[in-house]
Amino acid sequence: MCRYCVEYGGGTKWYLNPDNYRDELYTSGAHEATVKMLSGVQKNSFDVGAMSIADESAPDLYSTDSLSVGMEQMIGHGGQVVPLEDALKIIDLCREPFLLMHCACRRYFGKTDILRCLYLWPQVIETALKERPWEKDSRILSKEEAKEFEIDCDKKGFLHSIWHAAVDTDGILPMVMCHCTATDCIPTKFRVSYGVINAQRKGEYVAEVDLAKCKEGCKEYPACMHRCQFGAMRYSPVERVMYIDPQACFGCGLCRPACPYGAIKLVDRSSYPSLVDNW
């Protein structure tokens, strides 16, 4: 568990703690400002605006801690990778309906529009429909449809991440789930290009390969390799197996279903003592 779970987990992970889904958080403290910007008319200025100043904010690629702190303290918005099973638990913790809308990183950087942002709070729908009438492609999903959407994303190779609306003394509010890839998601690029930890934190798990099973499996053309968005999977042409680097793994679990031999599993991140501070 990272600091978020230590301080706001209540014995579990921060995004699985029902306390963080209290209605009063939605309108309190630092959460209210982020919620208002993300659900209302200021969304574009907020999210793409933050992207547009990243280069000025990170002059030195080897030292981006200040940008990381800024994301959490000033912008009040950041993500963490979650595997499918946790994504489904998050859906279960929330009330219907859900708002499924376009992905800003794709739309505002010229890529093909796909609906990939799943907003968790029913209150968001009302504000979004009222203040952003031009977004006519958004869909309203039931709990069952939202779960089907999560499963579909997992099949297609889009990693799940849970995004908070500010960290404050009263909690950390899970606001939206994004489903993207490191090729398209600008915050994930901030993480992989600039090392901004709070832009996209690593998940609570890491993947492990059963080397004996793997060796009997794909041999020359590993079916899992293309599923990793973070370069954590390395193929050895000598042993003809895949190795996963726990230091590079984000614990998204997308490699698992791609293995036809069931050789990959997710384990708790805490099983590696070295990862205690690697988020």
Partner: peptide, 10 residues
């Protein structure tokens, strides 16, 4: 894919 666009104001 470095170039994008955003509203000039809300």
């Amino acid at each position: 894919n470095c170039i994008g666009f955003m509203n000039t104001e809300p």
